[in-house]
Design a protein around this nucleic acid. Sequence first.
DNA 1: CGGTGTGAATCTATTCACAGCA
DNA 2: TGCTGTGAATAGATTCACACCG
Lengths: 212, 212
Amino acid sequence: MDIPKPSRERLVQLIRILDNCENEFVSSAELEAKSGWPSNTIRKDISCIGNNSTHSRGYGVKTLRETISKRLGLDITRNFCIIGLGRLGSAFLNYGGFERDGFTLVAGFDSSVNRIEVLSSPVPLYPAFKMPELITRRSIEMALLCVPADSAQKVCSSIITAGVRAIINFAPIILEVPKAVSVRNVYVVDELRALSAALYANDASNDPLDRN
Amino acid sequence: MDIPKPSRERLVQLIRILDNCENEFVSSAELEAKSGWPSNTIRKDISCIGNNSTHSRGYGVKTLRETISKRLGLDITRNFCIIGLGRLGSAFLNYGGFERDGFTLVAGFDSSVNRIEVLSSPVPLYPAFKMPELITRRSIEMALLCVPADSAQKVCSSIITAGVRAIINFAPIILEVPKAVSVRNVYVVDELRALSAALYANDASNDPLDRN
DNA sequence: CGGTGTGAATCTATTCACAGCA
DNA sequence: TGCTGTGAATAGATTCACACCG
């Protein structure tokens, strides 16, 4: 646990920004313009990963991207699966961009055998009962959890037992997981709420209800 | 800007946890078990919004939920729209849960007239060129941006001009927006990366490459 | 010069520990 | 007694400012 967590998050995003840079070199000031984070912060983040820049020309885009990627362990290819193939889950099935970023979509699972037969998919689909075995056998470390809220916790526990260590959860509940397992919640209503709260907090008209 | 941002984020999630509480009262220790955050932190967060608890029984679930909601401005109903009705965008069209949480889905937009005619939807769908006018006329403050990466920035700028102040961006690019506009990026590959980096950082086997 | 890299200072958030209420 | 609420202490992140390198 060497790089501060906020820096890690920014560095992950920085990769995406670097991928959109046309020039060979980029300065921290330019990165500030593209990201909104102060150039100071960006330089400090980058210094965490021990980059050696070409100084007065800025950072070499390609080198920097590789250094970040390596230092965060993103050069490792990891297997993942999609669980729950409703509208949302099946939307991801056909998104082709995962491989390019080092993530191999190994399988899709759904409790409805009918749905599995009907869907067209570039990756194999399986009924839910085969999930534990396949997770173990194919070394699936990560999962996109796209099942309905009422089965999410149950499914979650079973895949963790089978070996999954990281979950992106789209179900609108807080999953209870062991500390060793990482979860990121992507719940659109919470995002709307967070934005709504930000709008409210930013509106000058809503002066603090002066507590104490 | 009264409540610290991390507290705000936690409070938003807390609402969800409270919605899943069966009992009438809940203690900070129980909330710790459900959320993973230390009870100290939770109490401090709650004290920010000036709650008056019933002490030795814990917090009244209903009261607390309402206080948070009010204090964060989440009792205000806000209009939003979905832009881009591909697999992802159209998946949200039919999700019925937004209203319940105070968000009114007013419209869907897509550049393909054909797609608009084919899709069945509980809310009206419009061709893209009508977007600016409708955003202004219907007071749409928030948008789910589900268009492809290469048109995202252009669409984003135009809806901001029309009056949108908060965006959930699903396109894999960093949007450049004025400071007054809030953006939350939901990009699944970045989530996978963040998880992968977390796995890597947690793995004891990956000892720091000791930078000084 | 035009930039990075980085200790030191500041600001922010979390944790502690205990007084005080029901 | 059980649990909240909160100042005070600690830990953590950001910002500053300047030395130093190509």
